[in-house]
Amino acid sequence: MLDDTTVGYFDSETGNYVPRGNTTNEDDVFNLGDTTTIRDDIYANLVLRSRHGNHTENLVVYQVVGLCELWDNDKPGLMITKTAFSGFTIEEVQYVDGKFTYKDQNQDKNPYLQIILWYHENLAFPNCIKTLKTYLKKRGAQVNRKVKPRVRIIQKANTDSGVSRVSCLATGFYPRHINLTLFRDGQPVSDHEITGGDLLPNGDGTYQMRKSLEISAEEQREKHKYTCSATHLSLDNKLDIDLEYEGKPITSIISSVLMVLVFLLVLGTGAAIITWKRRRTDATKSDYSSTSTSDEHVETPS
């Protein structure tokens, strides 16, 4: 993982590292040398066998997670590795500014501690930073991009219970960090009233978040004003979106629309009647004018 982007994975069937989501014509290279083999030989096998006995008859799950950081000034940050055995973390190593912090969950003396520290300082840490810099050159634009969120606030009524739900939704944003707040009459809604708020991934590498609030029928009659507010790295200022109709019940909206339609229908009918009368009057005048003109040209016998 490079930040929150998967850049590759190991295919256990082929035994190869497979790049994922490459945005350049260059092939990604997972460059940690032979450090994985060294760790398996001098650390994993020896430590697990000596501290947890022989598990040849049962399924054994051994997990290791490691990360390293690189600051914007190109200065290396910390490195952390955690080791788990059968679902429990058994040790954690932190390395920063040349100093180690070692935590052993079993609270016993690890005979391989010096080997572990030597491994981090001389192999794992420098190779992790080197690999991180290599990926940043190839994928920097991908992980440093900023995509603005699309924010909207919607209300959905439950006709059976009379309860409505106001939802604040932000989607399509990157990076993942966002502050999404639902306001009622200018005041933030309490966390215990809010449901949702989980960060979910989209298929295009962006993220989405939804926060919802249930509104009783009594609250709907009070006509509160609800606002969805979002702050994100891609936004210069805070983005505020108000709920349309300010939380009015859907029946009021339908009634208003029907009243407008009836008014337009009456107005259209009246206009049609007036136009018909005008045409009728014009036609009558035209007939009268033609008759008068004909009478004026009748010659009187001498």
Rank of each mutant, 00 (worst) to 15 (best):
T275M: 14
T37A: 13
K137F: 04
D242H: 05
V163H: 04
S216E: 03
V7W: 00
L48C: 08
K277L: 09
G197Y: 05
S302L: 12
E26M: 03
S302Q: 12
L233E: 15
L233R: 04
L180K: 11
L123E: 04
V151I: 14
I194P: 01
R278K: 12
Y9M: 08
G197F: 03
S167N: 02
V7G: 01
E219L: 07
Q107W: 10
W118A: 15
G197D: 09
H297D: 06
G21I: 03
K130S: 14
R165E: 03
D34R: 08
G15H: 07
L264V: 09
N179V: 13
G33T: 06
K130A: 14
K148N: 01
T206H: 06
T171V: 10
A283C: 03
I274K: 13
T300G: 04
L182D: 10
N127K: 10
L199H: 02
K109V: 15
A157P: 07
T134K: 04
D41R: 13
L182W: 02
I115E: 08
R20M: 06
T89P: 00
D236V: 09
D204P: 01
Y9T: 12
A271L: 12
Y62V: 15
G186L: 05
Y43N: 12
D28K: 08
Y226P: 04
M259W: 12
R152G: 06
N31V: 03
I241L: 01
A272E: 10
T23D: 11
V189C: 04
K82P: 05
D240N: 11
N54H: 13
D27C: 06
R176E: 08
E222D: 10
M209A: 08
L213N: 05
E13R: 12
Y9P: 07
I250S: 07
E219R: 10
